[in-house]
Structures are given as structure tokens and as C-alpha cells.
Amino acid sequence: MSPQGPRAAAERVISDNSLTVRIGDLRLELPPTDQLVFLAGVGVLAALDLIEWPLALVIGIGHELARSHHGKVLREFGEALEKA
């Protein structure tokens, strides 16, 4: 299939839904701004002792795992569409 196929579309959605920071030769992919704000909010709640640090860590890790799984599902969906 052409480079404009379903797989390319899925990759575009995934890459459009992230924030890339470049510092010299270093390239760092961050989650989208709204997710960074969510994680910062969890950090603030932990810093103010409104929630415990282990709970904040579990929330942050769970949130990142869900985001990672979403990207994987989109890639697999694009691949399946190309095979169909």
C-alpha cells in the first residue's frame, strides 16, 4: 500500500498526539500537553500531602501505561487495515 495508507495515518495520529522537545542532539518525546497537566496536578497533590507519593506514582504509571497501550492499539489497527 502507499505511504498514505492506514498505517501511516495511525502513525500520524500517534505523533500528532505527543510533544517533542529537542535539546541539541537529544530528542525527548513527551505526552500531550493535557496529559502533562494531569501528571503535574497529581504531583502537586502529592507535594501538598493531599495524596501519598506511592499513590501518585501508581496513578502516573497507570496513566502512562494506558497512553502507551492506546498508541499500540492504533498502530495495530492501521496494520490490520493495510492487510485487509
Rank of each mutant, 00 (worst) to 15 (best):
L57S: 13
E76L: 15
V44K: 10
L81H: 01
A40K: 13
T20A: 08
G71P: 00
V73T: 09
A47Y: 13
A10E: 00
L74I: 02
H69P: 05
G24W: 04
A56G: 11
R7I: 05
I61L: 15
R12M: 07
V58R: 11
P3H: 09
E79S: 05
I59W: 01
G43Y: 04
G5A: 13
F77G: 00
A47N: 12
A9I: 03
Q35W: 01
E82V: 03
Q4H: 11
L50D: 12
K83G: 04
L74W: 05
S2Q: 10
G62K: 06
G5Y: 05
G41F: 03
G71M: 06
Q35L: 12
E52I: 01
I51W: 02
P32M: 05
G78S: 04
A8Q: 06
M1V: 09
E82W: 03
P31N: 00
R22H: 10
A46L: 07
G62C: 07
S2D: 06
P54D: 08
G78D: 01
S68H: 12
V58W: 11
D25T: 07
L55V: 15
P6F: 09
L39M: 12
A56E: 01
H63A: 11
L39Q: 05
S18R: 11
R27E: 07
M1W: 04
P32K: 08
G5E: 06
V58K: 12
K83N: 06
A84F: 14
A40D: 14
E82R: 04
V42L: 08
I14C: 01
G5K: 02
N17F: 03
V13S: 02
H69T: 10
G71E: 09
L30F: 05
R22E: 09
L48D: 11
D34L: 04
G5R: 06
T33E: 07
P6S: 12
V21W: 03
S68W: 07
L48N: 05
S68T: 12
G78N: 04
V44T: 12
